[in-house]
Design a protein around this nucleic acid. Structure first.
Lengths: 214, 214
DNA sequence: AACCATAGCGGAACAATGTTCCGTTTGCCA
DNA sequence: TGGCAAACGGAACATTGTTCCGCTATGGTT
């Protein structure tokens, strides 16, 4: 009885119609497939066609394209966010942890065609996507950045927002351009973050722990 | 006679109708104004309306949006390209010249709303813009990069293409986001380019010539 | 088992955009 | 002044995201 009450109070009844549940799953699968095939900007009509439903159904389940994208990639963004503290715990220095985590972030972006571009798009249609990434990853990045600044390995005054944006930007188009290696440029950016001649190399001898190997 | 023949062979007679000449100028002005007001993605219809002509006229003069954009910014791209050798001649070291030139490139991008994004767009509509920038700036960047590599100040194996792309990417969205400082991130990228512990600082004492001041 | 309220569906329709097409206008030369 | 080809204007087409609404079919009820 109390259990029922709690359920009633905490959330709306998940008792959607069977076809609705089925369609949502089908849509997520179709969208994932379409994103892989045509990139994140795959037309809603294509996704609907893949799923064998009408566009109206797409919009019933996902009010905007961005919501669909968020739903498809939610797991991976969560995984990336959760990897932050893990990196900090496992790495030899906070700077190494930051580098490692950024690498995971780059993985996320370059393997999803168009994701980085969508994140940067000022198109209002992607606002939800944008907010979600920031909400979820900004605190993680901030923690890593603070730790690395605290250890004296990097300049202290770069905002996590700016770093995420910069890395995200560097990943734009990386998936479709063989002449462009986003990971490498991000590596340069992270390398540039180190204090030049500052109180660096506190924990160990120079050039050992921070030169993130390819 | 021979003069006429040469002219005939070398170029089409510039004798266009007066209204055509007038319209082209008007269109360029209108486009420039529209780009300032609404960014580079200003609708063709808006530009046509500003110029007081029909859209057909726009397309007669500029076969595609990209051609219009190229025409509007040609002068500034040329200036940037020509500044390359000048930087090399004036700077204390090739690395400083590179940093200075990249700064000029960033200027070009961040002051033109949406230019950086258009450069990175994989939309075929911007192919011409894309090609023009690469044709004109790649050799310049390459020369600076080679010089800096030759002096031992930076890693030798970064392609000019990759650097231009990276810098261009970092500038995306910079004009509309007060929390994002593209110039600073580009600075970090360029800083990361320096050889860590390599044969650097050949020409003068360390930390003097290469730390590009704000 | 039949019934029906309604959640859910399908896809036509709307808006914004780049681009093409073609009938009409107009500058220029004879 | 007459004529013709260059140039023009804007309707029309294609491609998007998104909304709307009449219809279907699901699932509880009787």
């Amino acid at each position: 009885m109390e259990g029922d009450e709690v359920t009633d109070m905490a959330e709306r009844p998940p008792r959607r119609r069977a076809d609705a549940q089925r369609n949502e799953k089908t849509l997520l699968d179709a969208a994932a497939a379409a994103f892989v095939a045509s990139g994140i900007e795959a037309p809603v009509r294509d996704i609907a066609a893949r799923a064998g439903v009408g566009v109206g159904t797409v919009y019933r389940h996902f009010p905007t394209r961005a919501d669909l994208v968020v739903a498809v990639y939610r797991h991976q963004v969560e995984a990336c966010a959760e990897a932050g503290p893990a990196c900090l715990a496992n790495a030899t220095t906070p700077y190494a942890a930051l580098a490692r985590w950024i690498d995971l972030f780059v993985d996320l972006l370059v393997t999803k065609h168009g994701l980085a571009a969508a994140l940067r798009s000022d198109d209002t249609q992607f606002d939800a996507l944008h907010s979600y990434f920031l909400d979820r990853l900004l605190p993680v990045c901030s923690q890593l950045l603070d730790a690395a600044a605290g250890s004296g390995e990097i300049q202290a005054d770069l905002a996590a927002y700016e770093l995420l944006r910069g890395v995200g930007n560097l990943c734009i188009g990386a998936e479709s351009d063989p002449r462009y290696d986003a990971r490498r440029l991000v590596g340069l950016l992270i390398a540039g973050l180190r204090q030049p001649g500052g109180p660096a190399e506190v924990p160990a001898e120079p050039g050992q722990q921070a030169d993130k190997p390819g």
